[in-house]
């Protein structure tokens, strides 16, 4: 078995140490004897929807995000839509999450989105939403807690056809108003919990590994349990920082 990961725009969308997520996935596969391959797709690069089972896109600075938005809709939209429809897992974080929707109104400019989730993002006047955050996420096996850090100027509003990733327990979430955080559709997850959120939430990392392997090999694998003492302590630490 092999986990095949593709990072989208790793050179541009990496501002909050997003590589921590990739390192985390890699080690957890290696320790279980699962193969791991990782590659990147940058500006202009085509994407083969069948070649990878877990797609990742992180956060970036405004300038990079503008460029990525324009490039992504021309060079990658169709392939990513096909991959998600075919059961591939996609994790989009922070700036990457904003690009999943229909559009992102950034000051005077409307950035195009992938349209993979029914949501819109607007840069509204008012302070950035910054701080530790904890949400209660529902991914099919009952509510579980995700802890992390958010830092975004954009406010995201879900359309009637979209389900949030979870409910905000502490923090601001999608827009600081409606109490929701992120988006979840099939095996696609978008969230404002930025940068290395998987190290703070090992259960989500294992969930993504499971989904991706299931897509490749047909049956849902039972992942071998690991000694997660450090991981659990880190999760508790991030939760405590958010006040949960």
């Amino acid at each position: 078995m092999e986990l095949r990961v593709l990072s989208l725009y790793p050179e541009q969308m990496n501002i909050y140490a997003d590589r921590g997520n990739i390192v985390f996935l890699q080690r957890r596969c290696e320790w279980r004897g699962i193969g791991f391959s990782h590659s990147g797709a940058g500006p202009g690069d085509p994407v083969d929807p069948a070649a990878h089972d877990l797609f990742y896109i992180g956060g970036g600075q405004d300038r990079d995000q503008r460029m990525v938005a324009a490039d992504m809709v021309t060079s990658k939209r169709e392939a990513l839509a096909a991959a998600v429809d075919d059961g591939a897992a996609l994790l989009a974080v922070c700036g990457g999450y904003q690009l999943l929707g229909h559009s992102y109104q950034l000051d005077d400019e409307k950035l195009p989105g992938l349209g993979l989730a029914d949501l819109e993002t607007v840069r509204e006047p008012g302070p950035r939403l910054i701080g530790n955050i904890a949400i209660e996420a529902e991914l099919g096996s009952g509510p579980r807690l995700l802890a992390g850090f958010e830092n975004h100027g954009g406010r995201t509003y879900l359309g009637s056809g979209a389900r949030p990733l979870g409910r905000v327990v502490e923090g601001r979430g999608n827009n600081g108003r409606d109490g929701y955080e992120g988006v979840h559709r099939d095996n696609l997850i978008g969230t404002y919990l930025h940068g290395p959120l998987l190290p703070k939430n090992a259960w989500l990392a294992d969930h993504l590994i499971t989904l991706a392997l299931e897509r490749r090999y047909g049956a849902r694998p039972q992942l071998e349990p690991l000694d997660d003492a450090f991981e659990n302590a880190a999760h508790e630490s991030a939760r405590a920082a958010a006040g949960v």
């Binding site: 921590g20 080690r27 190290p199 450090f230």
Partner: peptide, 18 residues
Amino acid sequence: GTRAPEMALRLKYAGWPT
């Protein structure tokens, strides 16, 4: 430090023996 467990986790994933 206030986030000691997260530091320890980072070192584990950097390949330091636990």
